[in-house]
Design a protein around this nucleic acid. Structure first.
Lengths: 330, 330
DNA sequence: CTGTTAGCGCATTCAT
DNA sequence: ATGAATGCGCTAACAG
């Protein structure tokens, strides 16, 4: 049986140091209000007793518990881990802890998590929320909220603009000499998909390159792989896929059909979640999920500090990252 | 400016319902102690006022705050998200919330996180801890702890036995006719790495195949890629990598050097986190991280409930998943 | 600068 | 079955 340390309290430290409890409290929160000698004396006593401030008691007294929540739809989607990591680091810088919630793409679960988190966090970041506008606004009435990839007036939000990067992708292909390309689309209900598809079309038409759309339905490896037949049937010489996972599937499908990349066919992904981890290394549109996480938390902490809600709309531009899956057509 | 709801307290509900505060408290925690009528009356009043129990106050009073912590070395490593997700679901089943910590493979950061979490969680799951045995035992003295992939006597632990799968991997290679293989190792402080390396050696020696070890330091794509030179220099015809990420890096490095897989060289990964998403599809040792997460949390919650620490050692076996990166040597 | 006094919101004796 | 009183550990006025 392992012995568990009991909690030594502020009172014991006070007694040991021969001061009042409030002085001990001050020594830890506002040392500048005390004379340096007493601070050191208190600290020494605290150290000797192994005193550790009780987070919960402090939270009850101050109403601030130094936690923020982060809720994502699917932690297993490689888009999110970098975001979570960045959020964590940013929170850490201000001595905040992150509560992580995973909704599994389920609005009900998301609603439940928000309620459960409220009361133990000072604020919340909702990433790619699947909730209705109404629910989000309702929650925003309960506690400070920051949105990622959701554009609601009056609620601070950080948006990743994949349009800019997709435009660069089309320009890149046009410059290489591709006259006909295909866009391998993602989920029809996805805001990102709409944004990307229309960006492809707009850029293509102004550059006089033809575009066809091939649906992949789900953003996944298998969808991409299954789409290869349809892609090649269009006679296009290049493709831009909804995301990297889809692109990776397309890449594998092309390899199976002995279509060499980038020799016979050029391919571009989106979100750049694979890094250079495919072979050949995938040209992709950068993803800013890391910055999004960092900025969202930073924004939230600002809100908490200033006790005010500013109507921030922080847009992160994306860019094309050229690697080895794009070249001039034969 | 959005209006934020103020916290309605137990007292207000009590007054509205015409009962004592303690009755309201009971209505929420021990309804059986009250007459059904008063319970419903209280509940109605609570509902009307929008009362929500204050988690922090309850925690201070009871010492139980319904949170458990989960600390992982690298959330971006695809090994962990499924584990985190499963842990979350399991915690959720008992109305517990998960605090997630990411150490970035840094023992100091891990130490810091543990201290920071202690005091707001009732217990902790340490996954693939990079801490020394001493530090872990020290922390175990402070709060209930469950380990994943770390084998310390007296501390409840769930171990993914990659040994069984690795053994199958070596047998598979031996059967194909490989006489010399290399093990591409992971972090030296990793329990899994030690286990895998010794499993490779044991199996190889009993099958009379030669083994050399090439270090990759970090479990990452780049480490694997950088190790390719050393791997080929050994003259081996096959490799088993510490994990899939490393293997993927090796795969890319081999492709760059125009070494065809599996024609010229066979490769096996570990953890099977990539599914069939590489090309060629990677042969790998199955991973049980999901079960590990679920079981670890379940164990922890059991400990919390029974207030006792049992010396549990839960072992999950693994197996080889044969795909397309292994074949007979030329 | 430092001690005294009240709470923070709730759970939990102890009465009744 | 219910009310009154006390305390969880700490912070925050308010004095001095």
């Amino acid at each position: 049986m392992i012995k568990r340390a009991k909690g030594v309290t502020i009172s014991q430290v006070a007694e040991a140091a021969g001061v009042a409890r409030s002085s001990v409290s001050r020594a830890f929160t506002r040392p500048d209000m005390l004379s340096p000698e007493t601070v050191t004396r208190i600290m020494k006593a605290a150290e000797a007793l192994g005193y550790v401030p009780n987070h919960t008691a402090r939270a009850l007294s101050t109403g601030r518990h130094g936690n923020v929540g982060l809720i994502v739809p699917d932690i297993a989607n490689p888009f999110f881990p970098p975001m979570i990591q960045a959020a964590q680091i940013e929170a850490d810088r201000s001595d905040f802890c992150i509560f992580l919630g995973n909704t599994e793409e389920n609005p009900k679960q998301e609603d439940k998590l928000v309620s459960r988190f409220a009361g133990q966090v000072e604020g919340l970041v909702l990433a790619s929320s699947r909730l209705s506008d109404e629910r989000i606004r309702a929650h925003a009435g309960q506690l400070p909220l920051v949105l990622i990839n959701r554009d609601l007036d009056g609620i601070p939000r950080v948006l990743i603009d994949s349009g800019s990067g997709v435009r660069e992708a089309v320009e890149h292909l046009a410059r290489l000499g591709h006259g006909k390309i295909v866009y391998v689309s993602g989920p029809s209900t996805s805001w990102s998909n709409k944004q990307r598809r229309s960006a492809v079309r707009a850029a293509a038409s102004s550059l006089e390159v033809q575009v066809e759309t091939v649906p992949a339905v789900l953003p996944s490896y298998n969808s991409g792989r299954n789409a290869v037949g349809a892609i090649l049937a269009t006679g296009a010489t290049a493709a831009i896929a909804f995301d990297d996972l889809t692109a990776q599937g397309v890449l594998a499908g092309l390899a199976e059909k002995h279509v060499s990349v980038p020799g016979d066919f050029s391919l571009i992904g989106c979100d750049d979640v694979l890094g250079a981890m495919t072979y050949p290394a995938l040209t992709s549109v950068s993803n800013r999920s890391m910055e999004a996480g960092r900025v969202a938390v930073s924004l939230l902490l600002d809100m908490l500090q200033s006790r005010a809600i500013r109507d921030v709309r922080y847009v992160l531009e994306t860019h094309l990252v050229v690697r080895n899956t794009t070249a001039a057509p034969r």
